[in-house]
Write a protein that binds this DNA or RNA. Structure first.
Lengths: 215, 215, 215, 215
DNA sequence: TATGAATGAGTATTCATTCAT
DNA sequence: TATGAATGAATACTCATTCAT
């Protein structure tokens, strides 16, 4: 499905509002006003509010699909290097599309999600899980990774940590005593901190390398 | 603030509905019908729908406060034992009050949260952080824990992992091939799996013990 | 189903408006304004506009059911007398509830009618037909009525004539040169004219009496 | 007023939809979609939805006007023969243009009809009435017809019976136990049944012939 | 001549809340 | 204390029509 400039603009505004107020909490009037268009345009372009969020998902999901697979086929990287690259890519993907991923967090919480969206999320999750599985088993075969790792929960930790950091960043900022720091500046800090943190966790939990004797 | 039986019953129903449909997605009529009371009762007892969710937070927050502190003052436990107990307590607290914590996850995502709720969440987070800080620094002083741990992100990982597991448990169930398993049964499994997983992460990331040489 | 005074008042107004502007052509706002109530009351009392017209039908249909059967069981009347009484009763019923019967005419024209309404109309028609059948066959057995009468079309003529007269009474008035006559006055005239006309048709078409030799 | 092929095609579609869903119940989008044209075309070609139905009336009315007069000037026919021809022509005209006549029935019920349409209907009715009057008085002068006939109501019976049969043909079909019969087949049957029925009524009610002594 | 885009007024319905009792 | 009735504002959506091209 292709969307024109106007439609993409509406989707963008909707994404921002759905992220901060929720789907039910955002009225089409809100969107129309923010996007500076007539309310009727939303029905005109998308059919309904429901179809709008489906359009939003279809656009963002497509963007997500292709990225990762390619890069990790590089044969010259060690398993741990691949995992680290992967972690950085996930952080980048989630942090660069915070609005969308907030919406997705919410949708995952809801029992009201439509089969269409629910299906897309499921598909994405399975894709992620398979990629991860390939990555880890490859490492295990090469003797670099441990065999007693709960893969599913490792992925849960990765996504959970980033999501939770994103969701609570206002709190984190205060707790970390960085209230003065500008938002964009803080985002950069958070990305790098998450990167270090998650790589460290993965290294010590997954890899066979002795991380820190006598330290 | 004290609430009578009727009020507590309403709060309970509201919690369940807010959790599954969101605050904006739940109408006071839904609540009234589910709780088998008159619609007017909600305004009558709480003043407004907004005040109802505030009441819900104040009730659940109070329940949360006291628990942990006591137990961890036990001098006979090693730092790692205390961390493990703490992990189990958090898992238990979150998993036993899934509805409430789903609501809290949503509220943290929202920019619409009232100062009252926002304040309560902040207070809770700071309390958790302080407890954690005490726990870890105590371990560091005893030479049991590493000094290069990002405390804030460690807590984020703990809560993020549990929350994400809770939010996506329907997916997890399918991905793990446990579609047939009964819900209550799966909950038990998830708790124990999370416990093992998180303890392992904490042990390998935080403690100085060499977790797995030559494995 | 019982309806309270307010509901009956709304139904009455709705009936008048549906009759003159059609169902789709009448907005709930029109009804609310005419009935001097809040728009929301219609949804409140009936659930929807659709349910309102169903309520209207259920009320009017009930009123229609019982009337006729009784009277025609009188054993002292000749078949022709019974037919004449029946004709007068149908005229009276239709002319006294012109609004409702206009709505019914429209509904019969429409392919959009709901199964509920459609079913009620069908039921009524079958009842009428059976009554008529009993009346005529009784007359035939007594040798008073001809045997070569198309019963269904005889009923069609009865209802069709009255309905058409009702629907076109504004034209009839002009054509008959009675533009000056007051509406209520004209109604009385029309009833009596229809009565004479239809009785004459039935007598000459159905009965074996020689109506007018050497005239 | 002349209409081009495209316009006539739109009118035809509109006629079908107005007949089955009513004027208010049919949207210009419905028509545009069914006619496979752009919505704007309707405003473009006719100015408005209102003007479209006026165009429809003007087209169909013109078709109606000329037919009958000529034929009945034939001097060789008896008055009763002429009446019978006339009955068949009316049946044919109404049954062949059921969609249009359903719309007309509705319009006659409505108080919302525009002066244009209302005027056209009135004109047609007066024309019919005059024709009928000529027919009957001619018969009376020749001693073939009774003098005590209510002409207006006789016409009302003719049109009312056919209209009512048309409007309720779905019911008639069931009542007559012809549910299996194909629609086109049933139409043929109905026409011939109506013809026999109405001719019989007219003969026995209007003519001086003794229809059925000793039967 | 024809049309996709756009609009503002309109649709029915639901909302949280208030009021009289 | 409790509630059925009522309300006005808001909801998503559809309408006939217009406009720029």
């Amino acid at each position: 499905m292709e969307y024109n400039t106007k439609q993409l603009q509406i989707i963008e505004v909707a994404e921002r509002l759905f992220a901060s107020k929720g789907f039910a909490g955002t009225s089409v009037r809100d969107i129309a006003q923010e996007a500076d268009i007539n309310v009727a345009m939303i029905s005109y372009y998308f059919g309904s509010k429901e179809k709008l969020i489906e359009a939003l998902f279809s656009v963002r999901m497509v963007q997500t699909r292709t990225q990762i697979e390619m890069i990790l086929q590089n044969e010259e990287l060690t398993p741990l290097q691949k995992v680290n690259i992967w972690i950085d890519m996930v952080i980048d993907r989630l942090m660069s599309n915070q609005c969308f991923h907030k919406i997705m967090m919410r949708e995952q919480l809801s029992t009201e999600r439509t089969p269409i969206i629910s299906g897309q999320i499921m598909e994405l999750k399975i894709r992620n899980m398979e990629l991860m599985k390939k990555l880890i088993t490859e490492g295990q075969e090469k003797g670099a990774f441990r065999h007693d790792v709960d893969l599913t929960l490792m992925v849960t930790t990765l996504y959970g940590t980033i999501n939770h950091a994103m969701a609570t960043q206002d709190y984190l900022k205060i707790i970390q005593g960085k209230e003065g720091v500008e938002d964009s500046q803080y985002q950069l800090y958070l990305r790098s901190a998450l990167s270090t943190h998650l790589k460290s966790i993965f290294k010590s939990s997954v890899s066979n390398e002795i991380a820190h004797v006598n330290q």
